[in-house]
Every structure is written in C-alpha cells, then in structure tokens.
C-alpha cells in the first residue's frame, strides 16, 4: 500500500504554534487508535512536546513517552529524536531531513513553513517522499492562527 504523506502549510506560524499543532495531530491519531511516533530534530524539542502534551487538560489526556520510558513497546505516542524501537502507523516528522525509517509507517505528517530557510528544507523533504514513491499532498493548517 502506498504511504500517505501530508504536508501541512503552516504559514507564518511560530515554533510554539507549530508544536501545539503537532500535539493536536498526535491527539487526533491517538483517538483513532493509531500508534504515533513524533520524530524531533533534538532532545530539547522532544522535551518541549512532552511538556506540552502533559499539560493538556485532563479531558484531552494523551498517554505518551520519551525514548526508553515505557518499556520496549512504548506508549500510544512516542516522542523521540532517536529511531523508533517498535512498529507504529503514524510518523509526525519535525526533523529537517526525511529519516530512513520513514518507510516503516503508513502515514506521515510533515510541515511547511513560510520562513525561507525552512521552506527550502521542506521542499527537499517533499521531493524525497516523492522519490520514495509516497503519495504526497498538502493541506492548509486551518486551525493555526
């Protein structure tokens, strides 16, 4: 089956807005009973997301873990700057490059910013996904301010 890659157009959203949007996407996938892997550029970014998810309203709770925190299987949502250790459906990619393990997923969520440097990197990723034969589409991130 073809891997679906969705690029969300983030416009001029700030980094904080982006992270909030990532949390929303992770929540949606979690509610659909999909196992999610959020791949970050570095540990610092993973910690920010961890803090954000943990601070959500109790009603919107999303069980999640950092690498090594929830045994080998991990929890429904894993946030990591390291390759995944268990199989998952959804990859949310926050890294500047397409990771080699992207092929393991059935769905990829990625982001395009209007900021020139980031936009260039996103374009490169877009092409990488296409080269790998993924089905790539773009969507407006309508809920972002």
């Amino acid at each position: 089956m073809t891997i679906q890659a969705i690029f969300y157009l983030m416009g001029h959203a700030s980094e904080q807005d982006l992270l909030h949007f990532v949390c929303e996407q992770a929540t949606i996938a979690f509610r659909q009973n999909k196992r999610v892997f959020i791949y970050t550029e570095d540990q610092d970014c993973a910690h920010q997301l961890d803090e954000l998810l943990w601070s959500l309203d109790a009603q919107s709770f999303v069980p999640h873990n950092l690498p090594g925190e929830a045994g080998h299987q991990g929890s429904p949502v894993e946030i990591s700057w390291l390759p995944p250790t268990s199989s998952r459906q959804v990859l949310i990619n926050l890294a500047t490059e397409v990771p080699d393990f992207a092929l393991q997923f059935s769905q990829i969520i990625d982001f395009v910013s209007e900021q020139e440097e980031l936009k260039q990197l996103a374009r490169q990723r877009y092409r990488r996904y296409q080269q790998k034969g993924f089905h790539v589409e773009t969507r407006p991130a309508s809920r972002v301010a």
Binding site: D50, E51, W54, S55, A58, F61, P63, H64, A70, P76
Partner: peptide
Amino acid sequence: VNRHYGQVFLNSLPDMQRTR
C-alpha cells in the same frame, strides 16, 4: 504519563499545574 489510566488519575486529582 504513559498509560491510558493516567487520565483517570488526572481526572480525579485536583487540577494542579503539571510539569515534567
């Protein structure tokens, strides 16, 4: 944080600020 039942605890405890 990482188990589903975490929500039951959070829903039952007073609404404290949370951090990791």
